Computed example of a mutant assay.
Amino acid sequence: MFGQNRDELRRFFRQAWEKRTQGLPLQPLEQLVAQVIELHPEYHRHLADERQLQRDFTPDDGETNPWLHMGMHITLGEQVASDRPPGIRTQYQQLVKQFADQHAAEHAMMDCLGVVLWEAQRAGSMPDEAAYLECLRKLSK
């Protein structure tokens, strides 16, 4: 979507944000990225500092990887827009009503997405869409 490696992805985020802050026109994907960045002022420092673009984030750091976090928001947006996996749009709408906040609902959904992606990576397989949707259903109970 953004490129084939971490550096390209992070630079794309940075460029989209720079264009947004300068009031320049944005392509649709840049607009989506800029909207996600805007929701996360705690990550703005990572966009402004070249060292942060190169930084590795590990669980031992005790800090959320801002690039992964923002990327998951974008992934959720794309999943909901395309209703892929089938049924996710309905789950999303229910969770937004339950949480009364789109951003909070997405943060809850990220826990499910993260688990399913981690399990797929560990098993060397595609993510289990049924398990993902089941996890989302459990959130709305």
Rank of each mutant, 00 (worst) to 15 (best):
Phe2Arg: 11
Gly3Glu: 05
Gly3Asp: 04
Gln4Phe: 07
Asn5Thr: 05
Asn5Val: 02
Asp7Pro: 11
Asp7Leu: 12
Arg11Glu: 11
Phe12Ser: 07
Phe13Asn: 03
Arg14Val: 04
Gln15Val: 10
Trp17Arg: 00
Gln27Ala: 05
Leu29Pro: 00
Gln31Tyr: 01
Leu32Trp: 00
Leu32Ala: 05
Val33Trp: 01
Gln35Met: 04
Val36Cys: 00
Val36Ser: 03
Val36Asp: 03
Ile37Arg: 01
Pro41Ile: 00
Glu42Met: 13
Glu42Asp: 12
Tyr43Gln: 03
Tyr43Ala: 10
His44Phe: 10
Arg45His: 13
Leu47His: 08
Glu50Pro: 03
Glu50Ala: 08
Gln54Gly: 05
Gln54Trp: 07
Gln54Ile: 00
Asp56Leu: 05
Phe57Val: 04
Asp60His: 14
Asp61Leu: 09
Gly62Phe: 15
Gly62Ser: 04
Glu63Phe: 14
Glu63Trp: 14
Thr64Asp: 13
Trp67Ile: 03
Trp67Arg: 13
Leu68Cys: 12
His73Asp: 06
Thr75His: 11
Leu76Gly: 06
Leu76Phe: 07
Gly77Cys: 09
Glu78Gly: 10
Glu78Asn: 08
Ser82Val: 00
Asp83Arg: 07
Asp83His: 06
Ile88Gly: 03
Arg89Met: 10
Gln94Tyr: 12
Gln98Trp: 09
Gln98Cys: 07
Phe99Val: 11
Gln102Pro: 08
His103Met: 06
Ala104Tyr: 12
Ala104Val: 11
His107Ser: 03
Ala108Gly: 15
Met110Pro: 11
Met110Asp: 15
Cys112Phe: 00
Gly114Asn: 03
Val115Cys: 13
Val116Arg: 15
Val116Pro: 13
Leu117His: 14
Trp118Phe: 12
Glu119Trp: 08
Ala120Gly: 03
Ala123Phe: 09
Gly124Trp: 05
Met126Asp: 14
Ala130Arg: 15
Ala130Val: 10
Tyr132Phe: 09
Tyr132Leu: 11
Tyr132Lys: 02
Glu134His: 08
Arg137Gly: 08
Leu139His: 06
Lys141Arg: 14
